[in-house]
Write a protein that binds this DNA or RNA. Structure first.
Lengths: 194, 194
DNA sequence: ATCATGTAATTGAACGTTCATTCGGTACAA
DNA sequence: TTGTACCGAATGAACGTTCAATTACATGAT
């Protein structure tokens, strides 16, 4: 009848959450496995029961985070609306996800420019690809956007959203719905077919 | 009459260049000081004659790289032209700098989301602030742009340029002048006053 | 119910390696 | 002689990972 039993859905998830919060603040090389373990209320060795290595832990966390982001994005989508309205709603959802989960945003940004991303390049969130990428493909195929290589679209959009979100966070500002719409307009005006 | 004397303008710059090339490819935690030294043709201890620590080396490299980028950007500027033309020329120069110096681009991107950037937050390239930032301030004050917080502008622009440049590099593609103009148009159409 | 048995979960000290940094020493110039 | 540039082996701390030992728990026989 240990107290531990109450506080979470398995130690594996505790390790993932601990890693996310620490790496989001301190970076990969700033967070040793020992600290991840202590922060998760777990012994160092336990981590290796669930993950074969630090790299595998990090890359599995990437999927975990991106799945959650995909869910948050899809939540804002209403397929009965116009494509432009849907695009704005989806972008606003992604923006909100970043602002409400700064650790996730920081982690994703760091992961993208890290050796891990190349070593585990084959791993990607199924949910994100199926739902989010599909949504953008539709916009490209139906000529809502400029004739840009689709692989250029995703990082371009991400760049602007991340820039805005981390600006808001660093300045401790509150953005109104109007402000957020302004940011999404930068993206939309940039890529829409004029 | 050592051969070493011939091959460079001081070992300090050799160390900086060595660090840039290695960190650009392997990341911060992937490049030990010993490797930086060997790659620069220098003993490990010598690095500490010029830089008090690894962090200081990295942050000084940041200034070094950003100075070079500022110079490359300014080179493309002709103050006699219209602001829109100047904007496009400046953006194209920055894009070219990224593509021609991928190590610099990777290094800058990694630096921005790293503990070093916060630890040495007070250090910034004078040249970049004086020339490049000033140029954008002019555009804001003279209402060429949407009414965006100027601190949002820089990361937004960088996000798109980096996305495009690293896409080109990763795909081993050749972008025509027209292609590059298309990318800059995304930025311009996004932020210009409609 | 009780116990025996096997398997999975968990622990944390210990290991071997790697790394940033130090330091005693050499060479040469002023 | 003094100081500057440079070397590279040595140092010690930190790190990822391993492992022998312990506990928790499910299963099945009695």
């Amino acid at each position: 009848m240990n107290v531990q039993l109450h506080d979470c859905f398995g130690k594996k998830e505790a390790v993932l959450k601990s890693t996310l919060s620490l790496v989001g603040k301190q970076g990969f090389h700033g967070t040793p496995m020992s600290q991840i373990a202590k922060n998760a209320g777990v012994a160092a060795g336990t981590i290796y029961h669930y993950f074969p290595s630090k790299g595998a832990l990090i890359s599995e966390l990437y999927i975990y985070v991106k799945d959650r982001m995909a869910k948050a994005i899809i939540d804002g989508d209403d397929p009965s609306k116009s494509y432009k309205e849907r695009f704005f709603a989806v972008m606003v959802s992604q923006y909100r996800f970043y602002v409400e989960n700064p650790d996730s945003m920081n982690f994703l940004e760091q992961y993208i420019n890290s050796p891990y991303a190349q070593e585990y390049a084959h791993l990607e969130s199924q949910l994100f690809v199926e739902k989010v990428i599909t949504f953008f493909k539709y916009g490209i195929e139906n000529a809502y956007f400029k004739n840009i290589d689709p692989r250029l679209l995703a990082p371009t959009i991400r760049g602007t959203l991340v820039a805005a979100a981390s600006f808001q966070l660093s300045q401790h500002m509150l953005f109104s719905d109007e402000d957020i719409n302004e940011v999404v307009s930068i993206i939309w005006d940039g890529i829409k077919r004029q």
